[in-house]
């Protein structure tokens, strides 16, 4: 049943999310909130010389949004800021259009099934939207939004 959406890898990352912790020396952070389902996420990014050297997150969410955040953090490390933002566009395309699946997405292709669940696209993109706001904020110092 619905294995197209809840693939093994998604279930695995939702139950044991990777890089799920705060980061004291993050250079950027941003908060994401999906009022529809109450999903909350705080993203920490460490950018050095335009390279994403570390990413982590904390938050509570559904399986799709948690797995998406987890897999996102794995796929970003080592990418330049520009590459990261490009990946975001490709990921968004994967979820919202019928175009052929891009080769560059790697493991992220498991989210392909979300296409058929329009109500869940927001869950899968929450972490990525948060990433966008983290990467576009011109902040060089660790910030606290508290």
């Amino acid at each position: 049943m619905v294995h197209d959406l809840y693939q093994e890898i998604i279930l695995d990352h939702s139950k044991r999310p990777r890089n799920c912790h705060s980061m004291a020396d993050a250079t950027r952070q941003a908060d994401g909130y999906n009022p529809l389902c109450g999903d909350k996420l705080k993203l920490y990014v460490k950018v050095e010389n335009e390279i994403v050297v570390d990413v982590s997150f904390v938050g509570s969410g559904c399986a799709i949004s948690t797995a998406s955040a987890s897999l996102m953090t794995e796929s970003l490390k080592g990418k330049t800021r520009e590459e990261a933002l490009k990946l975001l566009d490709k990921f968004h395309e994967l979820l919202t259009t019928d175009t052929a699946v891009s080769q560059d997405l790697g493991k992220l292709v498991v989210f392909c099934g979300v296409r058929d669940y329009p109500a869940r696209v927001k869950c899968a993109t929450l972490a990525w939207h948060t990433l966008k706001s983290a990467l576009s904020a011109e902040l060089k110092e660790p910030v606290s939004t508290e």
Partner: peptide, 27 residues
């Protein structure tokens, strides 16, 4: 326990069962 309402809602829908998940306009 351990299962987010949104996932429950989607999985029930696939079995034809319509429930509402979320804050029900009562945050």
């Amino acid at each position: 326990e351990g299962i987010h309402p949104h996932d429950i809602g989607t999985l029930l829908d696939r079995q034809g069962i319509a429930v509402r998940t979320g804050h029900h306009c009562a945050q």
